[in-house]
Write a protein that binds this DNA or RNA. Structure first.
Lengths: 192, 192
DNA sequence: TAATTGACATACAGTGTGTATGTCAATTAT
DNA sequence: ATAATTGACATACACACTGTATGTCAATTA
């Protein structure tokens, strides 16, 4: 509303946007904050004021990406009829997202080593929780703990396929292959 | 044999050993090569002579860890009767290894971001290849490509459970839980 | 015994993070 | 309306670390 806070909001979002670009293209370690801030016409002072330090900025980027992913995945699910179909469609969408460089580098590669386990758990909790929720509807006879652990396994398997796609020579073909396999395996995992 | 080369072998292995310790406890980025070399009574000159640069040292550590893991896993498999049992036992052993700090930090967290995809693929190929091999015996009717992709999914799922264990408050309980889930899911995935 | 190689040390340059301090405009208070 | 104050951001500095270029000396070889 006021001029002051709107300017602040603007610089913050500009820094975040450029961070996404550089973290995605050069990785966390390869990104120099001097270059990052200069790209948007600022100095590192602004960055440290808003995000505390380099990891703070990275964490903010991860949270933004993650919430965007969760939004897209939830959106997909809502249009499906059965929880089984929802899980399958979710897997497919997840694998599609894995072809995006931002997701590959930031979420799938760097986040594990940069973030503290606690932060990581918080960031990834959305995805795992959604899968857990679906499983509890699909197999209500099992314990809630079993659902959580299974969701962890499934999420990890999908992530692994995503990375496999990312590093593949012919991504499009790999995506098809991964989707087929995910479909097959998930169908076996889910109780009929 | 000669005094010269044996001394060289000794320094190389000492550097590698200390690298394992520090990379495991402080992570890749948090490890200073000056401290590392001083710990074994050398300077960074020796390190750069033997390993080229920091990533070269890290890659050597990863290869060593990976070959040790592969050795242990192969050893386990050989004592099993059926390929199905072998896969289950392999999963169990893999989850046990996930409790070791060296594996957690170096293989499960830092390797993804530090190593180039090409190096990573080479390093992890042992594990995935072994699972692929087992699947081809278990389900000979499927294509070899399907086996590879499935192996990727399974390996990723197990790795995810491993990390979940690593970050858990009560690791022992988490190990039991993860093993039960892995057992259950793998049994469903494997054709009867 | 002289020549040479090479394992490792030393010295230096460059880059990058983080922090302490400064500045000036926007807000708030009188 | 003007003075006081906050805070968003810039500037400057200290420190740590990597990588490289060069030096040295013992072990090998001729």
């Amino acid at each position: 509303m006021t001029t002051r806070s709107s300017m602040m909001e603007k610089t913050r979002s500009e820094l975040l946007a450029q961070a996404r670009v550089l973290f995605a293209s050069k990785g966390f370690a390869g990104t120099a904050l001097e270059e990052l801030t200069a790209d948007v016409g600022l100095t590192r002072g602004a960055l440290y004021h808003h995000f505390g330090n380099k990891k703070g900025l990275f964490y903010a980027v991860v949270q933004q990406l993650d919430s965007e992913m969760d939004l897209r995945l939830r959106d997909i699910e809502r249009s499906e009829t059965s929880p089984q179909q929802a899980l399958l469609k979710r897997a497919e969408t997840y694998l599609d997202m894995a072809t995006e460089p931002e997701i590959q580098r930031i979420i799938l590669r760097d986040a594990q080593s940069v973030l503290e386990p606690e932060q990581l758990k918080k960031a990834a909790s959305g995805c795992v929780a959604s899968i857990t929720q679906l499983l509890s509807v699909i197999a209500p006879q099992q314990s809630s703990q079993a659902h959580k652990t299974s969701a962890q396994f499934i999420n990890g398997g999908l992530t692994s396929l995503a990375l496999w796609i990312a590093n593949h020579q012919v991504p499009d073909q790999a995506v098809d292959d991964a989707k087929r396999t995910a479909y097959e395996l998930l169908n076996r995992i889910m109780p009929a």
